[in-house]
Computed example of a mutant assay.
Amino acid sequence: MQSKPFITLVGAGPGDPDLITLKGIKAIQDADVILYDALVNQEVLAYAKPSCTKIYVGKRAERISTSQDYINKLLVDYALTHGHVVRLKGGDPFVFGRGGEELDYVRRFNIPTAVVPGISSSTGLTGLQQIPLTYRGVSESFWVITGATSDGRLSDDLYTAVNTKATVVVLMGHAKLDQIISLYKENGRNDLPIALIQNGSLPNERVALGTIDTIIEESNKKTIGVPAIIVLGEVVSKHLAFKIVKEKIQSLAV
């Protein structure tokens, strides 16, 4: 017998399949249909029951991808015809995951919904790198900002964030890295520590550390590409590798 229409948004975490929550796994096990994104580690799909229909609806910057309107329609269609649909997203559904937009759409059809939060890359990948987003006397808050708006412009919030002492984490911003660096230089933040984390939590993870003045060179050395997050702030200097380099420079200056 077909189960009643129901949609659950599930955050799969930043990449490592071990970082999905137990509640997320239970939702996958119960799903009749799973619509999953590009950044979801497909190992977690192994938790699904054999009869579950799995559909890739990935979206990637600067690549041909599934439109949001089409995904919205799939969610409703499969819920009405199959029952429990799990919308599986990388990170957390409500941190630049368009989870709110999808809920707005499916609620128009009176379909019950639930959300299982996931570990966002903004907090998870910095934590794995042992970069504290807040630190007494250094950073009292952290901001999470998208790298670009829907029309391709640099986010207006970055023009405000450049002057804050808060830690700034930029998601989906690697394509705008040159513009971000120029913005920080224009505001005299040349010595501000910065980190780039690509494929965080995965075996092919790459990390580049430096300052606003040096990060482009470091990024080129490490061949950093997408997907990557950008972390700006004095807390980046707490990264063990950053501290080792800094200590070496200081010892040479003595």
Results as ranks from 00 to 15, higher is better:
residue 172 M to W: 01
residue 179 Q to W: 02
residue 171 L to M: 15
residue 128 L to A: 13
residue 237 S to G: 07
residue 206 R to N: 11
residue 165 K to N: 15
residue 221 K to A: 05
residue 165 K to I: 11
residue 191 D to T: 13
residue 156 D to L: 10
residue 127 G to Y: 08
residue 141 S to N: 13
residue 154 L to R: 01
residue 238 K to Y: 14
residue 134 T to D: 06
residue 166 A to V: 05
residue 192 L to G: 07
residue 156 D to P: 01
residue 161 A to L: 07
residue 195 A to E: 03
residue 123 T to Q: 12
residue 134 T to L: 03
residue 210 G to A: 10
residue 157 D to R: 12
residue 238 K to C: 14
residue 141 S to G: 11
residue 220 N to H: 12
residue 236 V to Q: 12
residue 240 L to R: 12
residue 204 N to F: 02
residue 211 T to N: 10
residue 200 G to M: 11
residue 131 I to W: 07
residue 132 P to W: 07
residue 124 G to E: 06
residue 206 R to V: 06
residue 140 E to V: 11
residue 219 S to Y: 03
residue 180 I to E: 10
residue 179 Q to E: 15
residue 180 I to A: 10
residue 140 E to D: 14
residue 165 K to Q: 15
residue 217 E to W: 00
residue 234 E to A: 15
residue 197 I to C: 01
residue 186 E to M: 06
residue 227 P to A: 06
residue 150 S to H: 07
residue 174 H to A: 06
residue 231 V to S: 14
residue 132 P to E: 13
residue 139 S to I: 06
residue 197 I to G: 00
residue 194 I to H: 05
residue 148 A to D: 10
residue 138 V to M: 09
residue 128 L to I: 09
residue 211 T to F: 02
residue 157 D to L: 14
residue 220 N to V: 06
residue 127 G to V: 14
residue 144 V to H: 04
residue 209 L to F: 00
residue 179 Q to R: 14
residue 228 A to L: 02
residue 194 I to W: 05
residue 237 S to V: 04
residue 203 P to C: 10
residue 209 L to T: 01
residue 238 K to W: 07
residue 202 L to V: 05
residue 157 D to T: 11
residue 237 S to R: 08
residue 227 P to F: 00
residue 134 T to R: 07
residue 215 I to D: 08
residue 235 V to K: 05
residue 221 K to P: 00
residue 182 S to E: 14
residue 212 I to P: 01
residue 198 Q to F: 06
residue 218 E to T: 03
residue 240 L to I: 15
residue 239 H to S: 11
residue 201 S to Q: 01
residue 165 K to G: 09
residue 205 E to M: 15
residue 157 D to I: 09
residue 198 Q to R: 14
residue 187 N to K: 10
residue 232 L to K: 12
residue 198 Q to D: 09
residue 131 I to F: 05
